[in-house]
Simulated assay, not measured.
Amino acid sequence: MSLARSFVGTSVLVASAAATVTFASGSAAAEPQGCALDRGLTSATAHCDGDGAYILEVDCFGLNMAGGSPIFGAYPKSVTGFAGSSRPSRDCMMPLVLGQIGIATDVRITQVPTRPGLPPNAYEYDPGRR
């Protein structure tokens, strides 16, 4: 009987600890809510309410010389935004700064990046960053 009582007591203790951790932990990560996209022919801007970070991804198509050699085709651009406090934007048409002349073919807001932003040796000016 002592072994059964010990087993039941341990089970109750473990279940109580698991329930306490589950109810006390709350949300694991803050998420942006109420996101809105402002999309143009060559650019996109995002804004989210709530808490947390998000990523604005823009798929561009056109001429891209940001990596050093000219490439005609698709090139991705991305930027991180913070819910409630920022309005990140990306523009596919930046001929003087990056040598990019293109149009935005797809725009999305994600929690996890799905594509790289720019080649590591490319610099992109962000007018929203201060």
Rank of each mutant, 00 (worst) to 15 (best):
D59Q: 11
L96K: 06
T22V: 08
A29P: 07
F61W: 10
P113E: 11
A122R: 08
V12R: 09
D126S: 07
P127S: 14
R130E: 12
D91T: 02
V21T: 07
R130N: 12
S86L: 10
I71Y: 07
M93W: 13
Q100M: 13
A74Y: 00
D59G: 06
G67H: 07
R39T: 10
K77L: 13
E124M: 07
D49T: 14
E57Y: 15
L96I: 01
A46T: 11
G67T: 07
G40R: 04
S27Y: 11
N64V: 03
A28E: 13
R108V: 11
R115E: 10
A44S: 12
A19G: 13
G67V: 06
P120A: 06
M94V: 02
D91I: 01
S69F: 00
A83V: 11
G81L: 03
P119T: 09
L63S: 05
Q111V: 13
G40D: 09
C35G: 12
C60I: 06
V8L: 11
I71D: 05
M65H: 05
G26C: 02
C48S: 15
R130S: 13
A74M: 08
P70M: 00
F82R: 01
L41P: 00
C92P: 06
P70C: 02
G62H: 03
L56V: 06
I101G: 04
A66W: 08
R129H: 08
C92Y: 03
Q33L: 11
N64A: 05
Q100A: 11
G73I: 05
Y54C: 00
P70Y: 02
A66Y: 01
G34N: 15
I71P: 04
R90K: 15
F72Q: 10
I101C: 12
E124L: 01
R129V: 02
R129M: 04
F61S: 10
V97P: 03
A29Q: 11
L41V: 12
N64G: 04
C60G: 03
S27I: 12
G52E: 09
A19F: 14
A53E: 08
A122W: 09
G81W: 05
M93Y: 14
E31D: 10
L118S: 10
K77H: 10
S2D: 13
T110M: 08
P119L: 10
V107D: 02
A30T: 12
S43L: 01
A15E: 04
G102Y: 03
D49M: 14
V12L: 15
L13R: 08
V12C: 14
S25M: 11
V79Q: 01
C35D: 09
T42K: 01
Y123T: 14
S69T: 07
G73M: 03
S6Y: 08
V107G: 00
D59P: 01
T80S: 06
